[in-house]
Design a protein around this nucleic acid. Structure first.
Lengths: 210, 210
DNA sequence: TAGTCACAGTAACATTAGTTACACACTATT
DNA sequence: AATAGTGTGTAACTAATGTTACTGTGACTA
C-alpha cells in the first residue's frame, strides 16, 4: 500500500503521514457499477482514489439524476470530507465508473491529521477548491450550453476519464447522466454520426473527433 | 469592532482569536451595487460579513451572468478562501446586494490561524461545506426546475435575504440573475399576479404569498 | 426456431423558453 | 407641455427540448 500511496500522493504528503495513512487505512477494491454512497447515508471513512474513477451524481426527490463530476486517481470526495468533519448526511450518490482501487481512511484520524500535518490541511483545502470548481463548471454547462454542447462535453469527459475512445454506454444511460430523455440523446448522437464525428454501435459509441 | 465580531462570530471563535481578528483587520462599508470581486482578479483579503448581503454570480465568456447564491451575516466567501489559500484567480463576481458591513482579514493571517486555532479550521471547513451545498442547490434549480419554479425560488430567496416582502428590482435585473430574457420574466410575473400571488409595480414587486 | 427483451431509429406532436417588434405608461428634465 | 429615457405588457413567431408511439434489429434463451 505504501508504494501505491507514494505513487499517487507522494508529492503531496510527507513521509510520516504516508506511513500513518498506510498503518490505519485499508485498501478497498470496487467493481464497475458498485454504489459507494447513497444520498442520506452517513459516511464512516474517507476514500483516497488510487486508480479507476468514481462518478458523482446528484439525485432529486423523484429519483431524477444528474452527473456532477468524476473523481480520478489523486482525488478525494469533498462531500465525504464535509460529511465526516461536520457530521452531515451525504447529499450525493457515488458509483464506481469502472473497477477501482481506493484507500479508506477512518474519520477519526482525519481530524487528528488536520492539526498535525500542514500537507494534510493543504490537501483538504485543495480538494474542496477542486470540487467547488467542478460544481461551478457543471453549473456553467447546464446554464450556458445547449444539450448538443453538453453531450459533446460529456463524451469528451468520458473518453478522458476512461482513457478509451470508445464509450461503453447505452443512450439511456447517457440520458440519465444528463437528465434528459433517451430520444433526445439518440437524436443528437445520430446527428454527430451523420457529421462523421462518432460511430454508433449497439451499447457503444466510437469517438472519431470532437 | 470587537463587539460586532462577538455578536456575529462569538459563538464560533474563541476569545483570543476574536481579539487577534480585531487587531489585524479593518472594517469596510460597501454600498448597494458595489462590485467587490471581478472574475480573473486576485484577492488580497478575506471578508467576514457583519451585516447586509452579498450576491455571488458566475459569468461566462460572453458576459452572460447567473446568480449562484447570497452571502449573509456570519458567512464568508469560499471562493475567496480557496483563492487565498491556493493562490488561484477568482472565478466569480461579487456584488453588494445592499449596503453592507464587512471585516477584511489579511490573507497572511489566515494560514497562521489555520495552524493555531481549531475553531478557525472548523469555520473554514464549515464555510466550504455551506458553499458547496449552495452550489449544488443551484444545480438542482437549473437542472430540475422550470423557469416558473426558479422564479418563485428566486423571489423567496430575495425576500429572505432582504427581510422585505417588496422586491426592488426591474424585470430585466431578475432576467440577468436567472440568465433568461426580460420578456420571459415579465410573462411569468404577470401570471403570478393574475394568480394573486404578487402585485406588480414599476421597479418593484410586492409579494403576497409564494 | 420461436419468443422475449433490451436497444436504437424516427415521426409526429406538445411544451417550454427565447426572440422580435411594437405599444404604452411613468419619470424626470427642460 | 414637449421630450427623452426607462420599464412593462403583449402578440406572433422561432427554436429547443420533451413526449408518445411505433418500428426494426440484434442477442439471448426456452
Amino acid at each position: 500500500m505504501i508504494e501505491e500511496l507514494n505513487n499517487n500522493y507522494g508529492h503531496f504528503f510527507e513521509k510520516e503521514l504516508l506511513e500513518e495513512i498506510s498503518k490505519v487505512s485499508v485498501t478497498k477494491e470496487v467493481l464497475e457499477g458498485d454504489i459507494l454512497i447513497k444520498p442520506g447515508s452517513y459516511i464512516k471513512s474517507m476514500p483516497l482514489i488510487i486508480n479507476g474513477a468514481i462518478k458523482i451524481l446528484r439525485e432529486d426527490q423523484e429519483g431524477d439524476e444528474l452527473l456532477l463530476y468524476f473523481l480520478e486517481k489523486g482525488d478525494t470526495c469533498a462531500m465525504t470530507l464535509s460529511c465526516c468533519m461536520g457530521h452531515h448526511k451525504s447529499e450525493i450518490k457515488a458509483i464506481a465508473e469502472m473497477d477501482s482501487k481506493l484507500i479508506m481512511i477512518p474519520i477519526k484520524k482525519m481530524e487528528e491529521w488536520t492539526t498535525k500535518y500542514s500537507s494534510w490541511r493543504s490537501f483538504v483545502f485543495e480538494s474542496y477548491h477542486k470540487r467547488l470548481m467542478e460544481a461551478i463548471e457543471t453549473i456553467d454547462s447546464i446554464a450556458f450550453l445547449n444539450m448538443d454542447e453538453r453531450l459533446l462535453k460529456y463524451l469528451k469527459d468520458k473518453i478522458k476519464v476512461n482513457s478509451d475512445t470508445i464509450v461503453h454506454n447505452t443512450h439511456q444511460e447517457i440520458a440519465y447522466d444528463l437528465h434528459t430523455s433517451r430520444v433526445v440523446i439518440s437524436r443528437l448522437l445520430k446527428k454527430l454520426e451523420v457529421d462523421g464525428r462518432i460511430e454508433l454501435n449497439r451499447n457503444s459509441i466510437k469517438v472519431i473527433s470532437l
